[in-house]
Amino acid sequence: SVADGQEYSVSGFVNVIKNYKVDVDVDQANSVCKGETARYNVEVTNDGIQSDQIALSTEFGELSENRVTLDAGESTEVTVTASSEEALDRNFNIKASSTSVSYATDTESAAFTSETCYQSSMSVSPETSETSAFNEAEFDITVQNNGTKTDEFSLSADRGELSTSNLEVEPGSTETATLTFTPEELGDHQIDIEASGRSTTTNTVTVEASNGMESEVSFDEAKTVCSHDTR
């Protein structure tokens, strides 16, 4: 005060209330096989004191709704679905924004992974077998699971007999079956083999069938003889 030379002060608090405020919450991570669809649950909340229309956007995948209208304090749930035909590992943002004011926004990050769940290969030993007609040839068939999920294979061959028609193979593991074939005709016989599950792998082997007999014809060296000489 100028009159008495004293200084006076008053302290207080100012409570700033935002009319518009939004909040978004999403599942953090999702992992699927290639070609499958990941689903994310996204909760959107109007934390303001006014009813508001909220716009939604995502950097990856598809939203079930692009806009929602919420009363003050109200929440709702939308979904994001995402997929990839290739192996993929990425993060992406989902954003909620008030359509009434520019300052009321919220962004949440989510992770997406698509992996090679089902992939396989086949090897056969031997690749070629030599045998005589009506004698049995035998092959060992090995199916390898190169994926990240257990796969059950149906095993088939267009000739011969298999020791089993089903193989269940764990990720990174192999299982073996036996194929036997008895040729009834001479010549080369090709056998096509297939292991079919969530993935499919094939191979071809050959049976070379002979008559089982080896013969050799030889003659004495040429000789010159006189007539009537039988030596």
Rank of each mutant, 00 (worst) to 15 (best):
Y118R: 11
Y118F: 15
Q119N: 13
S120V: 05
S120G: 12
S120N: 06
S123P: 02
S123E: 04
T128K: 14
T128R: 13
T128H: 06
S129T: 10
E130Q: 13
S132Y: 06
S132K: 11
A133T: 12
A133H: 05
A133Y: 04
F134D: 13
F134M: 12
E136P: 05
E136G: 05
E136D: 07
E136L: 11
E136V: 12
A137Q: 08
F139S: 02
I141Q: 00
V143A: 00
V143E: 00
V143Y: 00
V143K: 00
Q144R: 13
Q144V: 07
N145L: 00
G147N: 07
T150Y: 00
T150F: 00
T150G: 02
T150C: 01
D151T: 06
D151H: 01
D151N: 12
F153H: 09
S154V: 15
S154Y: 10
A157H: 05
D158H: 09
G160C: 09
S163P: 08
S163Q: 08
S163F: 07
S165D: 12
E168W: 01
E170Q: 11
P171R: 12
G172C: 13
G172W: 02
S173M: 06
E175F: 00
T176K: 02
T176R: 01
T176I: 02
L179V: 08
T180V: 13
F181K: 07
T182C: 08
P183A: 10
E184V: 11
E184R: 12
G187V: 12
G187T: 11
H189T: 13
H189E: 09
Q190N: 15
I191N: 06
E194V: 15
